[in-house]
């Protein structure tokens, strides 16, 4: 089996998250289990990923506004899943070429973009929960 690209892996993660979000409310209702943010539990300061569980559960239920208010990053993950799912299928069928590695400069640019996204998300969470 070929090595999956980073966007494909994130798309796969999104699919796993969707399945988890579909069953998570049942699990919490039956067991009382929760997944609180350790940073917020200990310090009252949210982290950039806070609200993702709520956002994922809301999105699989079609509650787009609730999902956005909890953490807009969930839409990026959903986009990865929506785009890379068909890409993986087309690549597996041989219709499209396998993905190529990015150059180190491109990787650096995407790394900075990811860092910036995390910073914006953190500011959003600080505003929402701070």
């Amino acid at each position: 089996m070929r090595e999956f690209s980073v966007p494909e892996r994130l798309g796969g993660l999104g699919a796993l998250v969707a399945v988890g979000a579909a069953v998570w409310p049942t699990v919490t209702a039956r067991t009382g289990a929760g997944l609180p943010c350790p940073l917020r539990t200990m310090t009252d300061v949210p982290c950039p990923a806070c609200g993702l569980t709520t956002a994922a559960v809301a999105l699989v239920r079609g509650q787009v506004e609730t999902a956005f208010q909890a953490n807009p990053l969930i839409f990026a993950l959903a986009a990865f899943t929506a785009v890379t799912g068909p890409l993986v299928a087309l690549r597996a069928a041989g219709v499209l070429q396998p993905p190529r590695s990015w150059s180190s400069a491109r990787r650096r640019q995407v790394g900075w973009l990811a860092g910036l996204t995390a910073l914006v998300s953190w500011l959003f969470q600080l505003h929402r929960l701070g």
């Binding site: 994130l10 993660l13 997944l35 943010c37 350790p38 940073l39 982290c47 950039p48 990923a49």
Partner: peptide, 16 residues
């Protein structure tokens, strides 16, 4: 890895 909503455990998905 755990303190930031367990995101650190996901780093192998994108780290070189």
């Amino acid at each position: 890895d755990a303190i930031i909503c367990y995101i650190g455990f996901l780093f192998p998905l994108w780290d070189a």
